[in-house]
Design a protein around this nucleic acid. Structure first.
Lengths: 207, 207
DNA sequence: GCCAATAAGGAGATAGTCTCCGTTTCACGG
DNA sequence: CCGTGAAACGGAGACTATCTCCTTATTGGC
């Protein structure tokens, strides 16, 4: 899976070195400036030509997908941990959505390409990753619904889209730090059944 | 307010004619291609040079603001109608949010510049318009909260942001026509109190 | 009809994306 | 160690979009 050709000569070391270095630089760059910064600027900062950048990552989306891969694994690990440790399905769903929310706010502007990947429905790396997380969300949601902890008419994809949308809105934050939390609460009050005792916005079920 | 200089000669007719024509063309163009289409393409379709377009509307946002003005008035009228005719504060808020939702989906991609306008918090035409609608939302929400029909911890700006976010997510619609409605329902279940009898997603309180 | 004011038009400066191709670097065999 | 061909590099430049001048054309007032 990591080898290109089947029998030929082994991969050149400079190629692997460049790839790794570009990823390091891009991670830093996206973290600083958001994911809309200039591709050529990334190439320049990495000390390679634009051609090299584009040969490794033909699109901005491909670069993003490669960057997210490490975080994907982290999120998968978190999923496993939640499924193992959290027995209450309501809290489990809440924690999973919290994890998703953190994943999707890793870089400024990340929700946009994720939405695009989803809507094109294609087989891009980003789209496949998202589909996987939608499925996971459906699993957690299904369990919560069976326990009567989540509204029966909600669907996993709706929760995933809502998470994206909430993260997107976070970019606004009109001189008001509390709006992101408020939107998360609004969403949570939306999906869950009113049986809970504590007040919305409390940290119940979250780390 | 519509006159430029105070005492000078009156506005040239070709200027007014061009402005009107550009607006007509832009309305059509944005409706077809979404608001991200090329500005120069609009100028070309209107049969004017780029300079002329930019003299009338220095930024894409300015053009958008001018285009929305007519719809703003329509939305204002709708607000007045709701406040006059709908006595139930819960239904009134729901109808207002529905109206907002329609306004914000007038053009493909509209939520993005609206969010940008809000977050910059400046005095751009779009920002001022949005602020007005946030205030209106607060009015409707306040009435609903006094009647115990809306969660007391929700704020108007959160509902407005949620409406933007929901409209933004509509752009995804991953081969699934029902997601937009689902998100609206999720949001509604989020803000309102559980006292309602009918099922979420029903048309109660809406036209 | 003349003139000053004002608007129009479009070439071009700037910036970003992405490609092609001549040059360089590497892995392998001798 | 060195020659050789395949593979990767780098960057010039084609293309597209935004936005700005500056020259030319049009208009309203007298």
């Amino acid at each position: 899976m990591s080898e290109g050709a089947v029998g030929g000569r082994r991969q050149r070391t400079d190629k692997q070195r460049n790839r790794t270095h570009i990823l390091e630089v891009a991670e830093e760059f996206f973290a600083e400036q958001g994911i809309t910064g200039s591709m050529d600027a990334i190439a320049k900062r990495a000390g390679v030509g634009p051609g090299t950048l584009y040969r490794h990552f033909p699109t901005r989306e491909a670069l993003l997908a490669a960057l997210l891969q490490a975080r994907d694994e982290e999120l998968e690990a978190r999923r496993v941990a939640i499924q193992r440790e959290v027995t209450d399905s309501r809290a489990a769903l809440a924690q999973w959505l919290q994890a998703l929310n953190e994943w999707v706010t890793a870089f400024d502007g990340l929700p946009e390409p994720l939405r695009a990947a989803l809507s094109e429905g294609g087989t891009s790396p980003l789209a496949i990753t998202c589909q996987g997380f939608v499925t996971t969300t459906e699993d957690f949601l299904g369990a919560a619904q069976r326990d009567g902890a989540a509204q029966p008419w909600v669907r996993g994809r709706d929760l995933f889209l809502s998470t994206l949308a909430t993260a997107w809105a976070r970019g606004a934050v009109m001189a008001d730090e509390s709006s992101p939390d408020a939107l998360v609460s609004l969403m949570r009050t939306g999906w869950e059944t009113p049986a809970r005792k504590t007040a919305p916005g409390s940290a119940e079920g979250l780390s």
